[in-house]
Each structure stands twice: as structure tokens, then as C-alpha cells.
């Protein structure tokens, strides 16, 4: 059995989760503060992948990053980067596709913290960054873990978006969900079953771990 689709999937999920942690945390914090029209619009855009058919998202990404068209053409000419039918394209699509799974729980967690926590820290002379690092972040840890696991698990299960932008190149863009589909197409049910079983086991263990962890944590850090 060729295990490369499984490794590729895990690599994709890990990189996507890491990138989303880096950009999702500050973005969720910013969104959790005072509302404005621009924030509402940005939040709506971030949430779109939840309701949009993955193939639609993949189609637009394919158009946007195709080397024959504007942005994709420019990226290739200027930086020699190609997002279509490449692993970096899968990462980009996954980051966009899984973004609401990271942003939404983290934003809610920030919003649930009383505003007086930040205010108390400011009156002690602490900067916004110190307050974020030492007060806010440690108090949303359970939500952050849930968000990271959900993002990772959601990326494992991607199909439509990755197929549209990445295609089915073995070792490059052929992730596990595509390998399942491809095996079924070739009537190789044994391979399809093996891939499916591994994906099922990984996601089940991850979701179960989050449930167990959250059971032993207070639901809200302030309880």
C-alpha cells in the first residue's frame, strides 16, 4: 500500500494549522474587539468557506492563480511561484478553506473574556502585547486547542478544493481523500478501505482527545 497520500495529508494539515495559528490568533483578537463595518465584511469573507461548495472555492482559486491569468501570471513571473497543481497551492487553498475553523472559536473565546482583564493589565503599566501574551492568551488555551485540532481534522478531510487546485499528482498533490476517490474509480476497494480506515482512525482519536481534554477543563476559564 502506498502510504505517501497519508503522509502528504498529515504534512498539509500540520502546515495549514501552523500557518492558521500564526495569522488566526492576531486576526481573531482584532475581530473580537469593537465592531465596525469593515470587520463585519472581513468576518463574512472568512466565514464564506463554511457555506460555499468547496468546488466553487477551488474553481475561483484555480482561476485566480492560473499562470495564464493576472495574479497567477504575475506571481510566476515575479517570484517564480506557482500555486496551481503544486503543494504550496494546496497549502494556500487549505488555509483559506479551514480559516473559519480557527478564527471563529478563538474569536468567541476572546470575546468571552471580561474586558476588565485587559483594563486591569493596562493599569498595571502593561502594553497591549504583554497583555495579549501573559493575560489573554493563557486564558483561551482550551479554545485554542479545540480550534487547532478542528483545523487539523478539517484539513485532513478536504476534497473538493484540493482536487480543483491541486489535481491528483502522486507525491505532490494526491492527498488521502483524493486517493480514496481515485481507488474507488479504479475499483480498488481494498486500497480505498485502507485509506479511509486510517483517516477515520486519526480523526476519531483527535476529536475524542479534544472532548476528553475539555471535559477535564472548566468550560470557561472564568468558571
Amino acid at each position: 500500500m502506498d502510504l505517501s497520500p497519508i503522509w502528504l495529508t498529515l504534512k498539509l494539515a500540520a502546515i495549514t494549522t501552523l500557518i492558521l495559528l500564526l495569522i488566526g490568533l492576531p486576526l481573531a483578537w482584532w475581530l473580537s474587539k469593537k465592531r465596525s463595518l469593515i470587520k463585519t465584511i472581513i468576518e463574512a469573507i472568512i466565514t464564506m468557506p463554511l457555506v460555499l461548495p468547496p468546488s466553487v472555492l477551488g474553481f475561483y482559486l484555480l482561476l485566480a492563480f492560473s499562470p495564464q491569468h493576472g495574479l497567477g501570471h504575475w506571481l510566476q513571473q515575479t517570484f517564480n511561484v506557482q500555486f496551481v497543481f503544486s503543494f504550496q497551492g494546496l497549502v494556500l487553498a487549505s488555509v483559506i478553506y479551514s480559516m473559519p475553523f480557527m478564527i471563529s472559536p478563538v474569536k468567541s473565546a476572546f470575546q468571552q473574556l471580561p474586558v476588565s482583564l485587559s483594563q486591569a493589565s493596562y493599569t498595571l503599566g502593561k502594553t497591549q502585547w504583554q497583555t495579549f501574551r501573559y493575560v489573554l492568551l493563557p486564558n483561551i488555551k482550551p479554545s485554542l486547542l479545540t480550534a487547532a485540532v478542528l483545523t487539523f481534522a478539517h484539513t485532513l478531510g478536504e476534497f473538493g478544493v484540493v482536487l480543483m487546485i491541486g489535481g491528483n499528482i502522486p507525491g505532490v498533490t494526491r492527498v488521502a481523500s483524493i486517493a480514496v476517490y481515485d481507488s474507488v474509480e479504479q475499483m480498488n476497494y481494498t486500497a480505498a478501505n485502507n485509506y479511509s480506515l486510517i483517516l477515520f482512525a486519526i480523526t476519531f482519536v483527535m476529536v475524542l482527545s479534544v472532548f476528553i481534554y475539555n471535559k477535564y477543563q472548566a468550560k470557561s476559564p472564568l468558571e
Partner: peptide, 30 residues
């Protein structure tokens, strides 16, 4: 001036204690 520049001690009605810090850590933070 920002709250940091004013250097004021503030006791909040809801205490605004940091759930992640111990008693000692609260004071060491300040």
C-alpha cells in the same frame, strides 16, 4: 494619556483577576 502613562491603581468591581495566575504571580506581574 494612556492608562499605562497615568500609573493609577485600580480595583475593579468584578476584581478582574487573571484566572491563569496564582496570587503570587498576580503581584509579580505588577
Amino acid at each position: 494619556l494612556s492608562p499605562q502613562q497615568r500609573h493609577i491603581g485600580f480595583v475593579f468591581q468584578d476584581y478582574a483577576l487573571f484566572p491563569n495566575m496564582t496570587v503570587k504571580q498576580h503581584l509579580e506581574y505588577a
